[in-house]
Structure formats: structure tokens, C-alpha cells
């Protein structure tokens, strides 16, 4: 299985993971370790001055994970740029998952603000990984302004609806010259395998692993699914056909009996 390169960084695993929604830091680490993931997302928020927050940073760093801060909570390009600059200081990385959703109900990404923010962040030297709709035109525009990859959604965040946007994802994959990472909505390992089979370069999974009854085992299930899907893609899948095509030679020896 080939490695994935983003901004010159080599990833051996094509499974990127989120750190949200886990019952505990231990459950999170067990799941992430079993998943083989090398890139994990984190969020920023205003510090809780009264309570000490669980330190998840240290175990992630000790495990050698590359950290990808997101701009979650930003509703405009301006807020997202500010969040990215804060994240760069907090986590000492210029990589950022750019996500801008003005509406908390459906958490739909705002494509126009995302494009504006991406342009500005790229000028400021960030490696921008934009989370967007499965919009082939927008993905192309993001690529043109210098995004190092695109992250179109499969279905709404946390919905577990899988690749509802498949026809558009396939166009994005076909057109893109930067890695395509399918993010959001991947609810089962089979969704992840399908994403890889249709040619996605990676997937990002969070909810499906974090809320599983056995997060560690689910992490492994996703690792296997992503590897299987990628291997199948690289091996070359057969074409779909409407009619049967025999796998055994159709000899007519039975005819000799009549």
C-alpha cells in the first residue's frame, strides 16, 4: 500500500481521526492506537479557568501523533483566521483543518467564507485542509488558491449516514490534483472501505469510533477497512456489468448427454 503525502509529510496510515466524544482519555488513546492513525484533530476553546481540563495533549504527543487543530466554532472567515493563528501558537503547528459553520443545527460548512479564509491562511504560511461540501467547483477553487488537500463531507457531521454525496465525491476525486480526504458522516468501516475503493486518498473518522461500545476494537475495524479499501483501489477493481460474465468456461459437454 502506498504512502500518502500532504505538504511533504508522509503518512503510512490513510485513516485520520478526531479526538471528540470519547468517554475518557484512556478510551481515546486505546482506540487511536488500534486504528494506526498518525494524524488527529483537536479543537480550541476559551480556557476553563475554574476547572482543570483533562490533558489529552501529552498522551497524543507521546504516541507520536501529528496534531491537526481545527477552527471549529468559527462562523466567518475572520474568526477562522483568528482561530488558526491561536491554534498555531497553542499546538506549534502551521497545519489547520479549516472549518466554518455558521449554523449549529446542521453544521453545514460555509463554502464562500472557507475560500476567503483559505486564501488568507495560505498567504500566512499555513497548510490548509478545508472541510467543505462535496462541491467539485469549490474543491477546485480551493486547490487553485493553494490548499494542500480538500476534505469534502460524505454526509452531515456525526450523522453516520455514510457517503450520501458519493456521485459528487467521485467527480472531486477524478478532478483533484491534491489529496482528497473524505470527512464527516462515515459511520461504519464499510463506509470507509467504500471511500477508499472509489479513490479517496484518506478518510477522517471520529464519531463512529468514539461512541462505539468498544472503541479500541472499532479503531482496529476502521484500520482494516481503510487498508482493505485502499489495497483494492490500488489493485484495480473490475467494472460493473449488467449481464453475467462466466467465471468458468462454458463448455457444452452437458449437451452431449441429450
Amino acid at each position: 500500500m502506498s504512502s500518502l503525502f500532504i505538504a511533504g509529510h508522509e503518512f503510512h496510515s490513510r485513516l485520520f481521526t478526531g479526538t471528540g466524544k470519547y468517554a475518557s482519555a484512556d478510551a481515546m488513546m486505546a482506540s487511536l492506537a488500534a486504528s494506526g492513525s498518525e494524524l488527529v484533530t483537536l479543537s480550541l476553546r476559551r480556557m476553563d479557568l475554574k476547572n482543570q481540563t483533562d490533558n489529552i495533549l501529552l498522551p497524543l504527543q507521546q504516541h507520536g501523533m501529528k496534531l491537526l487543530p481545527n477552527t471549529s466554532g468559527a462562523r466567518t472567515a475572520k474568526e477562522a483566521v483568528f482561530a488558526a493563528e491561536l491554534a498555531r501558537e497553542a499546538l506549534e503547528t502551521s497545519w489547520v483543518k479549516l472549518e466554518i459553520h455558521p449554523d449549529p443545527r446542521y453544521l453545514m460548512p460555509d463554502g464562500m467564507e472557507t475560500l476567503l479564509a483559505a486564501e488568507e491562511l495560505i498567504k500566512k504560511g499555513f497548510v490548509v485542509m478545508p472541510y467543505v461540501h462535496a462541491d467539485p467547483v469549490l474543491c477546485k477553487r480551493l486547490e487553485e488558491v493553494g490548499c494542500q488537500c480538500v476534505m469534502p463531507l460524505g454526509s452531515p457531521i456525526g450523522s453516520n449516514m455514510g457517503l450520501a454525496s458519493r456521485p459528487f465525491l467521485e467527480i472531486i476525486i477524478e478532478q483533484s490534483t491534491v489529496p482528497v480526504i473524505i470527512d464527516a458522516g462515515i459511520g461504519a468501516p464499510s463506509d470507509a472501505a467504500l471511500a477508499m475503493e472509489i479513490g479517496a486518498d484518506a478518510v477522517l473518522v471520529n464519531t463512529a469510533m468514539a461512541v462505539a461500545k468498544q472503541p479500541a476494537q472499532m479503531g482496529k475495524a476502521f484500520r482494516l477497512a481503510v487498508e482493505a479499501g485502499r489495497m483494492a483501489y490500488e489493485s484495480g477493481l473490475g467494472e460493473r456489468r449488467v449481464q453475467a460474465q462466466a467465471t468458468s468456461p462454458l463448455t457444452d459437454f452437458l449437451g452431449a448427454l441429450s
Binding site: G18, G20, Y22, S43, R45, R46, N70, T207
Partner: peptide, 10 residues
């Protein structure tokens, strides 16, 4: 002054 901290997120 605003202080921000990193937390779990997707």
C-alpha cells in the same frame, strides 16, 4: 485578555 486551550474535537 483571552486564554484558549486545546481540547478534544473532530
Amino acid at each position: 485578555v483571552f486564554i484558549f486551550e486545546s481540547i478534544a474535537g473532530g
